[in-house]
Amino acid sequence: MILVTGATGTVGREVVSILAERGEKVRAVSRNPATAGLPAEVEVVAADLADPASLAPHLAGVDAVFLIWPFTDPAVARTTAPEVARVIAARVPRIVYLSAPGADQPESFWGLVERAVETSGAEWTFLRPVGFAANTLGWADQIRAGDVVRWPYGDAARSLIHERDLAEAAVAALTSNGHAGARYLLSGPTTVTQEEQVRIIGRTIGRNLRWSEMPVEEARAMLSVAFGDPAFADVALAGWAGFVNEPEQVTDTVARLTGHPARTYAEWAADHAAAFR
C-alpha cells in the first residue's frame, strides 16, 4: 500500500495514476475526498498536513508515503514538519519527499522538511526536480487572448521537467529498493530559454507567438500576489535571473530511474496543447 499526499496536485495526481495503472494499492490524501476525481480503484481519505494527527489513522498497512509539502512558509515547516515526519515514521518504513534544489539552503521550507524527514527514523529518498514544465501553464491566459507573452527573463535557460517523468521517478523510489538516502536531482533532457518555450508552444498550436520582456518590478508585484509571499516571488525571480548567465543543470536521473530518456519541452507542450488554445 502506497499513501500519496497532495494527491490531487500536478505531480501527486500523476503518481496516483501510475501506481493504479500498475496494480499497486493506493491510498490518496485529499482535504476534500468528494471532489478529488481520482480513479475508482483508489482509496481516497481526508487529512490535512497542517494537522498531523489527521494523517495517523490512514497509515495502517502503508509501506511507503509520497510526501508533498503544501506550505511555503518556513515557520510552518519548522513547527509542523517534524511532527508530520514523526507521525509517518512511527508507522511507515519509507518516505519519498518531493523537495527542490533549494533544499540546500537549510532555512528554506524545502530544507526544513528534508531535515525533519531525515531525522525521523524512516528510510528516505529526496526528489529534487528543477522547475516544472507545468508552471508555464501560467502563460495560458495570455496565449489564449493574443500572440504575445509578457514575462521577465526571456533569456533564462531552463531544463524543465515533465510532471509525468517526475511521477515515474517517484514511483520507482516508492516501489523498489536501492534509493534509501538518495538526493536525486531531476531535470528535462536539455535547456530551453523561456522565449523559446513560448515559440515551441506556438509551433505546437499552429500560431506565431512572440515574447515581450516584462520589467522585473512589475513581475515581482504580480508574483507576490499570486504566491501570497513576496519572499517566494524574490526567490523565483532570482532563479530566473541566474539562469540567464548560467543555464539550469541537466541530469540523466530520469533515464536512470525510469529506463527512458526525459521527455522534451516540446513533448510537454504537445501533451498540454489544449490548455493554450
Results as ranks from 00 to 15, higher is better:
I2E: 01
G12F: 02
V15K: 00
V15A: 03
S17H: 11
G23K: 10
V26Q: 01
R27M: 08
V29F: 05
V29P: 06
S30A: 15
S30V: 10
R31S: 03
P33Y: 08
P33D: 05
A34K: 08
T35R: 15
G37D: 11
E41R: 15
V44C: 05
A47N: 07
L49D: 00
A53T: 13
A53I: 04
L55V: 07
P57E: 03
A64T: 13
V65S: 02
V65L: 11
W69Q: 09
F71Q: 14
F71L: 13
D73G: 03
P74G: 04
A75F: 06
R78T: 09
T79Y: 09
A81Q: 04
A81I: 11
R86Y: 08
R86K: 15
V87L: 08
V87Q: 09
I88Y: 12
R94N: 12
L98M: 15
L98K: 04
G102V: 12
Q105A: 14
Q105F: 14
S108L: 10
A116F: 06
V117Q: 01
S120R: 06
G121V: 08
G121Y: 06
A122S: 06
W124R: 03
L127E: 03
L127N: 06
R128A: 01
G131A: 14
F132I: 04
A133V: 03
T136I: 09
L137K: 11
D141P: 07
I143S: 09
D147H: 09
V148H: 04
W151L: 08
D155T: 12
D155G: 13
E163F: 13
D165I: 10
E168G: 11
E168D: 13
L174A: 01
N177A: 15
H179L: 01
A182Q: 13
L186D: 00
S187P: 03
G188M: 08
P189F: 04
T191W: 04
T191P: 03
V192G: 02
E196M: 09
I200N: 00
R207S: 12
N208M: 10
S212T: 05
V216H: 06
V216W: 00
E218A: 08
A221V: 14
A221K: 14
A221D: 14
M222P: 13
L223N: 01
S224W: 04
A226I: 12
A231I: 07
F232L: 15
F232P: 00
D234I: 09
D234Q: 14
A236Q: 14
L237R: 01
A241T: 09
G242W: 10
N245P: 04
E246H: 14
E248H: 02
Q249A: 15
V250W: 05
D252V: 08
D252R: 15
G259I: 10
G259N: 11
P261A: 14
P261N: 13
A262T: 03
T264S: 15
Y265H: 08
A266S: 13
D271A: 15
A273D: 02
A274E: 13
A275M: 05
